[in-house]
Design a protein around this nucleic acid. Structure first.
Lengths: 251, 251
DNA sequence: GACGGATATATGTCCGTACATATGATGTCG
DNA sequence: CGACATCATATGTACGGACATATATCCGTC
């Protein structure tokens, strides 16, 4: 064994295999020798070899298929960074009691450019909501003066239009209502953040100066099979909102 | 066993334990019966019980400590969403050949508010870089007309000031240079995005109209022990940049 | 009462064996 | 030559036993 003798036997085996993979003795894509052969070579039980392989599988260096063998997947442990969310609600970075007050809800037939953006054929029916998100009553945050958190436009696939067919106040996110009501589950969300200026019309609704800066956050919610379930466009006045996230190293 | 008999034995055991945990028979924080007791109860070997427990540990439902026991950590598998990055470079969302052209590099002694923001005592030495990030030569992206990608100010802990002591052009991110040169590794990055307007001075440097919108992205890079290694403030002109990310459901 | 050592206990590691099962290769038959 | 059954093979599952090691507790000593 190349290692010191104090560590667990299976960790020594794992380390040796990892070294061999790193040095190219077992190229990516190739099959490792069988567990039986490795056990014999290292003079340990097959159980111990399996434990070592299991360790490396946890690091995504190896994968195994019954009846085939153990394949080398990666050269070295990829040091990836990740940002986790407890739930999709965390994408919204304001208090969870914020209300979405819908002022208009219209079924529209999308055309051309808009259809392309929604990833569907022209002529399909979508429900378009327009409204303001604001904090209820006195629970205004410390950040902004008062005024709505954002101006939100939502496009909902016609199949799920029932969740918001008439203008009203929503206390839960639209996607969450669709998930519950129709049993679809959101598997992926694409979020897009850009800077823009508010128009006069928007400024009046948001109670800010025309021409002041804003974050335009577009979110696309995808269900199974990468089908777009709903799309929301949130215009956040500059001083009233910021988007914060933390990424951590894996392991 | 509550399950059908076709699945693996250890999966049946795991399922039974999961049910018991979900129904509160084993409350969060409590210790499970010992592996030996469970093996006896289910009429299986201890090895099989361990495999079942290992399965639930992978789901973060259980944790184990040698000499103590197996503790219930969670009620049910948490469906978390995550956003992964291949490397921290992915936080920058422009071509990796972008250059950071530093126009000034000054060692400063931080005071009051700035010291607080950097999380250090007033009077500490930090290196302040100011410069523009731009694409080299002809490789201009399709998005913006030409002009710099962003105006970037970087604060570097005095200990690592050597990486950029004099103004010059950097082709690698500052944090990456610090990682290599000083052997520290960035374990966490905090990122903060807000909308703002560019001042006249900034507009001239970025070659945009004064008063146009911009994304201000502040990134704090932390090393081991949550110590701030460097902080960068990037001002991206509105039309020239957007921040995109995708989050996926776990499992 | 404080400190330290012996001890019981639970998980961790390791061995050997046996059989199950998915997979790809081989070979046979129409 | 193609479809299909057969077989060898590699990982997956399961058993039983044994010892290692970390931890908490008990107990005696100072």
């Amino acid at each position: 064994m190349t290692n010191n003798g104090s560590a667990s036997l299976y960790l020594q085996v794992a380390r040796t295999l990892q070294d061999r993979i790193a040095t190219g003795a077992h190229p990516i894509g190739s099959l490792l020798p069988t567990e039986h052969m490795l056990a014999e070579e290292f003079g340990v039980s097959r159980q111990t070899v399996r434990q070592a392989i299991g360790h490396l599988r946890g690091m995504k260096l190896l994968s195994a298929r019954k009846g085939v063998g153990t394949r080398v997947e990666a050269n070295r442990p990829q040091t990836s960074y990740y940002h986790t969310l407890q739930s999709l609600q965390d994408l919204f970075q304001f208090a969870s009691d914020a209300q979405y007050r819908v002022t208009s809800a219209d079924m529209v037939s999308v055309t051309g450019k808009e259809a392309e953006e929604l990833g569907c054929r022209p002529g399909r029916q979508w429900l378009r909501l327009v409204g303001l998100r604001e904090l209820p009553g006195e629970s205004r945050g410390p950040l902004g003066a008062d005024g709505p958190l954002c101006l939100t436009t939502v496009m909902i696939d016609g199949r799920y239009a029932d969740v918001a067919a008439t203008p009203r106040v929503h206390t839960r996110a639209i996607f969450a209502q669709i998930e519950d009501r129709f049993g679809v589950s959101i598997t992926e969300v694409h979020q897009d953040i850009e800077a823009t200026l508010v128009t006069e019309e928007q400024a009046a609704l948001l109670r800010v100066e025309p021409g002041s800066p804003a974050l335009l956050i577009t979110r696309r919610y995808f269900g199974s099979g990468r089908t777009l379930v709903d799309l929301s466009r949130n215009l956040h006045p500059g001083g009233r909102f910021r988007y914060a996230m933390t990424v951590r190293r894996e392991g």
